[in-house]
Design a protein around this nucleic acid. Structure first.
Length: 217
DNA sequence: CTCCAGGACAAGC
DNA sequence: GCTTGTCATGGA
């Protein structure tokens, strides 16, 4: 069975550097992380496009709910997400929108703080920590669970247990965790975009099974 | 028509 | 602690 570092190596050889997160600033990354919850990225892009030059914490935190929700419509769950972006923006403003000030906070403490925000769960918090705040927490999402499960790992159902299991087998590097998660998503996107496909799979023996099950759930 | 996409939360056990 | 119903659009 492939080790955790070996899986990374094969993904990297196949897909190369991913240059994540697709955002122009830390704040935009935070917004994208909330909007993409259980939502296809292309729908998130539509919502981000609707926001346009209003994609700023001061503007979003002050915008009337219905107006913001309407702009977010394409990304789904627009009522929830409008409220959550408002709270997130208020939190960001409470640090004077100073990303470096937030980065100086201890990682574990910052994670706890993010998790206290309504609408920020474990996966979203870890994405924010890695892609906006340079803190090494391994991100667990549905693709990660499927991938490791099909390779043969006994994947813990608990998010934290799974995260710690992976982190024990990797150095605590933000750059590594950044790239690893982006590569797993790249793999998932390829499978979802090309059905059926089964050539050039980076995971050899589990190729067919991985593709099939990734498509069918 | 059905299924699901880079989840989170409240309620119930 | 873990499980279930809910939130919602858009593309395949």
């Amino acid at each position: 069975m492939l080790s955790v570092p070996e899986i990374y190596q094969r993904l990297f050889e196949r897909y190369g550097q991913q240059h994540w997160w697709p955002a122009e600033s830390a704040y935009e990354m935070l917004v994208g992380a909330v909007l993409t919850q259980n939502t296809h990225w292309r729908n998130v892009e539509k919502a981000l496009g609707n926001l346009g030059n209003q994609l700023k914490p001061q503007v979003i935190s002050a915008m009337p709910h219905d107006q913001l929700a309407n702009l977010l419509r394409p990304s789904g769950y627009y009522n929830q997400k409008a409220e959550r972006l408002r709270l997130l923006s208020q939190w960001f403003i409470s640090y004077d929108c100073d990303v470096n000030a937030i980065r100086r906070i201890d990682g574990a403490l910052l994670r706890h703080t993010l998790l206290s925000l309504k609408g920020v769960g474990r996966e979203t918090a870890d994405c924010m920590l890695v892609y906006a705040f340079d803190k090494p927490f391994f991100i667990i999402d549905t693709y990660t669970r499927r991938l490791f499960s099909r390779i043969g790992y006994d994947v813990p159902e608990s998010y934290e247990h799974f995260r710690l299991l992976i982190e024990q087998q990797l150095p605590p590097s933000v750059e590594l965790y950044n790239e690893y998660h982006a590569l797993i998503v790249a793999l998932g996107k390829e499978h979802c975009a090309a059905k059926p496909c089964c050539s050039g799979c980076p995971l050899e023996r589990d190729c067919h099974k991985t593709h099939l099950n990734t498509l069918n759930g």
